[in-house]
């Protein structure tokens, strides 16, 4: 039987019902490798385990546990929670890392409740002191930095997507099959599943170096194309305010703010966004903030490094051509 290091950090690698390993695994394994020995857990439908385990190795996991469950594609959470409980019992890790994705949060929550473990959510980093892992959080839209830890036992934590830049070197991991006793817990049935189709060559909003966001000031879904045009010139991700999402200019997945995605890019450009406090909560830790708005009193200007009071339909086209001519 395989031995596990005393500084083992158990990482749940998220696998879609179709067997694809989600990109969040790179940051999770990177974070785990920085403070201990990363042991990855892959839960997949029968036959899908080896490919997923290989992918986890490419992200730097030295040991991979594979649980192949016939119900992995039909039962929403319990197969993964049962597998994580079995893996934790086998490995006795110092911390259990999951993505702060929708699925990761649910698995972490159920696992922590089942085992009575301390749960730390939406971490932006993890380090180690004399007593063990320390979790770092960015609270109230980045207004506060909070450190937390477990009073005893392994801490279970979810890690904000895109927050970890550390990456572990690719390895050829040792792969072990994990036997999972079924808990018999009642679960949600998956009735159907449509894989996300990435239609755009633009970067992911989470973790993007540059973000261009549009608000109500764009006026319509057609005119929102101006945001996309500037984003493409800058190689940026496209974001939006809740007002723009509610008005139907773009899908909810683009929403930046309190109830959307939190971003911390090098450059954030806000077009036609007034900067309600709920929006600022999702972007105010950006390194540089640029705002263009026709209302000189828009609160976004209070936090902008460079603000322009003016008509974005005049300023942005000029900006685009000025950037293009600087590059020639």
């Amino acid at each position: 039987m395989t031995e596990f290091a005393t500084d083992s950090i158990l990482v749940l690698v998220e696998v879609s019902p179709s067997g694809a390993v989600l990109p969040s695994a790179a940051g999770l394994i990177g974070a785990a490798a920085a403070i201990g020995s990363p042991v990855a857990l892959v839960v997949a439908a029968p036959g899908a385990g080896p490919a997923a385990a290989k992918a986890a190795g490419e992200f730097g996991a030295t040991q991979v546990l594979v649980a192949e469950r016939p119900d992995a594609a039909t039962s929403l959470l319990v197969p993964t929670v049962d597998s994580l409980a079995a893996a934790a019992a086998l490995v006795s890790p110092q911390a259990v890392l999951l993505s702060h994705s929708v699925q990761g949060r649910d698995v972490a929550a159920r696992f922590a409740a089942r085992t009575g473990s301390a749960l730390a959510v939406d971490a932006v980093g993890i380090s180690r002191d004399d007593e063990g892992p320390v979790v770092h959080h960015s609270v109230y839209g980045g207004s506060y930095l909070v450190d937390s830890a477990a009073s005893s036992g392994a801490i279970v934590l979810t890690v904000r997507q895109g927050a970890i830049e550390a990456r572990a070197a690719a390895t050829k991991p040792t792969i072990e099959t994990l036997e999972v006793p079924a808990s018999g817990m009642r679960d949600v049935d998956i009735v159907d599943f449509e894989e996300v189709v990435v239609a755009s060559s633009r970067p992911e909003l989470r973790g993007a170096k540059t973000v261009v966001s549009g608000g109500r000031g764009l006026g319509s879904a057609e005119k929102f194309a101006l945001v996309e045009e500037l984003a493409d010139v800058l190689g940026a991700a496209v974001g939006a305010s809740r007002a723009a999402v509610d008005a139907g200019y773009v899908p909810q997945s683009h929403q930046v703010g309190q109830t959307g995605v939190t971003v911390a890019p090098q450059l954030y450009i806000a077009l036609g966004i007034s900067g309600a406090i709920q929006h600022r909560a999702g972007m105010q830790t950006a390194k540089t903030i640029v705002a263009i708005n026709k209302d000189a009193n828009a609160p976004i200007f209070e936090i902008a490094d460079f603000g322009i009071v003016g008509d974005l339909f005049a300023v942005v086209p000029q900006l685009v051509s000025a950037i293009q001519s600087k590059r020639k």
Binding site: L22, L76, V102, Q103, D187, D189, V191, F193, E195, V196
Partner: peptide
């Protein structure tokens, strides 16, 4: 319906 990073799930719970 539940949207996650992996895709869109139709779900049912008794």
């Amino acid at each position: 319906r539940r949207e996650t990073e992996a895709g869109s799930f139709g779900v049912k719970a008794a």
